[in-house]
Design a protein around this nucleic acid. Structure first.
Lengths: 352, 352
DNA sequence: TGGCACTGGTGAAACGCTTCAGCAACGTGG
DNA sequence: CCACGTTGCTGAAGCGTTTCACCAGTGCCA
């Protein structure tokens, strides 16, 4: 394999200096180059298939035109970071937006002993998009690098970071209120293990808000935890029934979990929404592909991705601090049933 | 923001030369460094949070430790490259394997006028994984760069490229034969538009093989085309019924399409598998999340991703040419119904 | 003709790192 | 005491770019 052609080769072949070649090819408008020379250089570069190397450019401008994305590892498996379709849609939007702006995307899942701030420095990333929540020490490290960071779906109160999110608390409130408005009073809350700064915590707060507003007491027995994955919530179904709390509805904080739960319940003879109503969160495409179609809190995942990408690029290019909150709303489908007044007293029949 | 610490800073602080510092930190065993000096240098580097820059290393070794992945844009949308859950699972496996080997992953979707060989050269990618099929000119360009390429799910007959695939033709054969063995003789074939070198073409060949073996003539009217997406196949449902070919079964060449079709049929009152049987391909997680659960041709997508990653890394490090064919098999679920002999004569009742 | 501005171009330094070649000091065997 | 190998370390070149500073030539005006 022969050596790759460098700017020197183009210069020699075109009969001009490296400096001139560089000026022509990098298209600086203030450089004084005659039209003829420019033509020759461009032609020569074309002919030799010259492609400038980013590594050399990076050394000089301290800009790599590379954006990093960090995606959380959900659950226990070490590399099923895409088990939730949410990530695919998000990533797709980020990649597209980044690319349209002349950047490229470097992705990394999260491992136990991965040092992301090192990766960021090693690769001289211009900016980073971080999805989900992480230990504060990690974010502190990121801060010291001085690289712009956009936090998505994380509630970290630090002026340094840009953020993109939805009002998860309000979403949780809306979901729960929707169930209440449909006559439910015993409402299970199913989510990932609650962590500070996480979206699930916020959605839980919203759940509490709606309960409180309706004068319904919080019953800790109605709180369930599982991984954000289909299988994990599927396996949760028997436990919910076994506990015998008589819930007539459940607010599940991710559609993928809602679907797992619905099918898990179905597998043990409990029907949604006949026996129990379920509302999800996210409105991933999956929510309409199954039966019953899932009533859920809609958020625009693609918009979330493209917004995060836009912000990080703006920040790289000197833009101001930004915090964007995207809208959200309930979309009514078939997984929630209206409870008639006379049913209220009875509670969930299968638990009687 | 202060200047980033470089190897010079470490050297000065540790009171040794840059050369010595480099030898210590890059851990060359043949370098002759006293234990004491090594200790001091390491300590200093740690204390200053020194992280070597890849761009500088890349210039010297001509190795970027960067692997690229190219994912096809499915359908007409410009950035829904993850509309098929297949990609997420594949990418996840690739990313994990790559990372475990000290590489990082650069991803790029496909755009209309994207020049990937330029990206590859610009970023000095060590290797590339290409998913799906592309115009030959594109592959030729990749070849001229001399960068190792692993083709996944593409039937290109060129010794230069490594490949990872399954026996799609055999898979198509098995799927079709399964339908035939269950008593079906009028069998629709639903796939993406057939292209040379593509997996769908191979699956079609398998479909033909099985038909021929069973003495069933190929009926062009039973061939349907749509995008590899849920929505596109959903919308195909009315057309299949409208054509009135009396198919009692369909072989759909991707699960996501199979699901779209099933639900599309359902929406117009046609039940799977009661009215029509459907077999899919891929066995994505989705296939078991819906009702009926989809009978399909299983392939190990995660394995496909990790294998592609392993091969590309091996190739980068001087490994031999490799062509891997992964196993596949039918997994029986609920979307195919056994047709009883007396039903054969009648054909599909709804079309009568 | 001298002074000056403008045009079109070049040389060389710099970015951060690796690595070759070489140097001084110190045994060690003859 | 010389020759030679070994140990521990360093100087400087070089990777492919960009960019600052400078230079030669030309035209123009006073």
């Amino acid at each position: 394999m022969r050596k790759r052609v460098s700017i020197k080769d183009v210069a020699r072949e075109a009969g001009v200096s490296v400096t001139t070649t560089s000026y022509v090819l990098s298209g600086k408008k203030d450089a004084r180059i005659s039209a003829e020379t420019a033509r020759i250089v461009k032609e020569t570069a074309e002919r030799l298939h010259y492609v400038p190397r980013m590594s050399a450019r990076t050394m000089i401008n301290q800009k790599s035109k590379l954006i990093g994305v960090i995606i959380p590892q959900t659950g226990s498996s070490s590399h099923l970071m895409f088990s939730n379709p949410f990530y695919g849609e998000f990533l797709s939007a980020v990649e597209y937006t980044i690319r349209q702006n002349g950047y490229h995307l470097l992705i990394s899942g999260t491992g136990p002993n991965q040092d992301y701030s090192s990766i960021a420095q090693m690769r001289e990333l211009d900016g980073i998009i971080i999805l989900g929540t992480y230990p504060c020490s990690f974010l502190d490290e990121m801060k010291t690098t001085g690289i712009p960071v956009v936090l998505v779906d994380a509630y970290v109160d630090d002026h340094y970071f840009h953020t993109v999110s939805i009002n998860d608390r309000h979403g949780g409130y809306l979901a729960t209120k929707y169930l209440i408005d449909n006559g439910h009073t015993r409402i299970a809350f199913v989510s990932e293990a609650l962590r500070d700064y996480g979206v699930h915590m916020q959605r839980f707060r919203g759940y509490q808000d709606a309960l409180k507003e309706a004068g319904i007491g919080l019953d800790e027995k109605c709180l369930y935890t599982c991984d954000v994955s289909y299988d994990s919530s599927y396996e949760l179904a028997p436990e919910i029934i076994a506990r015998g709390n008589g819930e007539t509805a459940a607010f599940v904080t991710a559609d993928i979990m809602a679907l797992g739960l619905i099918n898990g319940l179905k597998s043990i003879g409990v029907s949604v929404p006949d026996d129990i109503s379920i509302i999800g969160f996210d409105d991933v495409p999956l929510a309409t592909m199954c039966l019953p179609q899932i009533t859920t809190v809609h958020q625009d995942i693609t918009k979330k991705g493209s917004t995060a990408a836009e912000i990080v690029i703006e920040a790289v290019e000197g833009g101001p601090k930004r915090d964007v909150i995207l809208p959200l709303y309930i979309v009514e489908r078939d997984s929630v049933r209206r409870l008639e007044p006379q049913e209220l007293a009875k509670g969930l029949s299968i638990c009687s």
